[in-house]
Design a protein around this nucleic acid. Structure first.
Lengths: 130, 130
DNA sequence: TTTAAAATACGAAATTAATCGTAGAAAAAT
DNA sequence: ATTTTTCTACGATTAATTTCGTATTTTAAA
């Protein structure tokens, strides 16, 4: 695992990645329609960005049929992890704890969510204890 | 508290805000020197950005003396909270839980940090129970 | 077969952010 | 008093991203 891997999906690249992770390999048309459920985005805009992402290697393209099918080339969890790290550095001086605090403080988690966290904590504790 | 307040400090604006929150009201010179402990940034670059921030209302300026003194106009916790929300939406579909999971999973918190979280959880539980 | 619809390719304009150079004013040093 | 240093003001440039128009190709419909 490289120490210096630079993932910088831009804002709209991330938007597209999210849709692909959620819906699986898709055409430009499909992604563009999804985007337009939220806000107006021209078809060629979506196309262009997806092409750029393919150039960068962020997406894989299958060009067998005319409607090219795009697949995210990046692992979802790994990518989100790196984005989180970056955000953490910029905003919380790298302290995950500070951020978790802020998140929990802000967000008033439900009982179920709290339980979920507690379970996770137990898991982590057990793992390190073993 | 408005529902639609738009905070978008850019990358370098956030960098400056962080320094101001940490060090208190400061001159451009001071902030620029702090930045240069980490990377080369021209003085006028820092100046320009801080002036823009002042225009936007992100910073307050005291111009009484020649060396203007800049103060963050935004509350640190509130701003970080909003940034977190934005990041959450973009990256974790708004789910604080997913993100906390990712953070805890990634980051392997120390025993002390875990305790800290557990305390916070207790606090939250008590608060909502009463 | 001709026309219409739906794709991609490509380039260029529009936006936004970041960087810096230069000028001029004010203060400090000599 | 003169020079040098230290500021701010301001504009211009660069760079990255986003957006979209137009041309061309391919497929589908009439």
């Amino acid at each position: 695992m490289s120490l210096k891997s630079k993932y910088n999906p831009t804002e709209s690249e991330l938007e597209i990645l999210q849709l692909l992770w959620k819906n699986g390999p898709s055409t430009v048309r499909f992604i563009n329609e999804k985007q337009n459920e939220v806000k107006a985005v021209g078809y060629t805009t979506t196309l262009k960005i997806m092409q750029i992402m393919a150039e960068k290697g962020t997406l894989d393209v299958n060009k067998e049929s005319r409607q090219h099918i795009y697949t995210p080339a990046l692992d979802e969890d790994e990518t989100k992890g790196k984005l989180l790290d970056g955000f953490l550095k910029k905003t919380f001086s790298g302290s995950a704890m500070k951020m978790v605090m802020q998140a929990l403080g802000n967000h008033k988690p439900s009982k179920e969510e709290l339980d979920e966290i507690k379970n996770l904590i137990k898991e982590i504790e057990n793992k390190s204890k073993k």
